[in-house]
Simulated scan of single mutants.
Amino acid sequence: MADPVTATASAALAHTLTPVELFLQADIVVKAVIVLLIIASAWGWAVIAEKLIRLGLLHRRATRLIDSIQGGLPVTAVAESFAQASPNDPFVQVYRAMVDEHARSADLVYTEAQRDSLQERVHRVAQLASSSALDHLQARLPGLATIGAVAPFVGLFGTVWGIMNSFQGIAASNNTSLAVVAPGIAEALFATALGLVAAIPAVIFYNRISGDISAYGKRLTAFIGVFEVELSRQLSTRGERNGLRVA
Rank of each mutant, 00 (worst) to 15 (best):
I66A: 09
T16V: 07
R140T: 00
S10E: 12
V180S: 02
A139R: 12
S132L: 10
A9E: 09
L141D: 07
G158W: 10
G184L: 03
A202F: 02
T176R: 04
G239M: 05
L57K: 01
G162S: 02
A191T: 10
Y206F: 14
L220Q: 14
A85I: 08
G225H: 07
P19Q: 13
A83K: 06
S117R: 13
V109M: 14
Q119L: 15
T237A: 15
I34W: 07
G225D: 11
T176I: 13
A186M: 06
M164C: 08
F82S: 04
L52S: 01
A193Q: 12
Q138T: 01
S81Q: 04
A191Y: 09
L137K: 01
I224C: 09
H15Y: 12
G71Y: 03
A222M: 15
R245V: 14
V29T: 13
I213P: 09
A202M: 07
L22A: 05
G225S: 10
P74I: 01
G211H: 08
A113F: 11
N88Q: 11
A199P: 06
I38D: 09
A42E: 03
A179I: 06
R241M: 13
S177V: 13
A215H: 07
P4M: 07
I209N: 04
T221N: 14
S236L: 15
R208W: 02
E240Q: 13
I69K: 00
Q70T: 09
A79F: 02
T18P: 05
A14W: 08
A222S: 15
E120L: 15
M1L: 15
S232M: 14
R219L: 13
R115G: 15
R233F: 12
I34F: 08
V92W: 00
Q25R: 14
A171K: 11
L118P: 07
T159N: 08
E80R: 04
A188Y: 06
L156R: 01
R219K: 14
G243N: 10
I66D: 11
N242F: 00
A40F: 02
W161L: 03
A85Q: 03
P152W: 04
V226D: 11
A126W: 02
N165F: 00
S131C: 11
H15Q: 14
V203G: 03
V197G: 04
A145S: 15
V229H: 11
D100F: 12
G158E: 06
A11K: 03
L36V: 04
Q119S: 14
A7K: 06
T18N: 07
L108A: 10
E230M: 09
M1K: 11
D212H: 12
A198Q: 08
G72N: 10
M98Y: 12
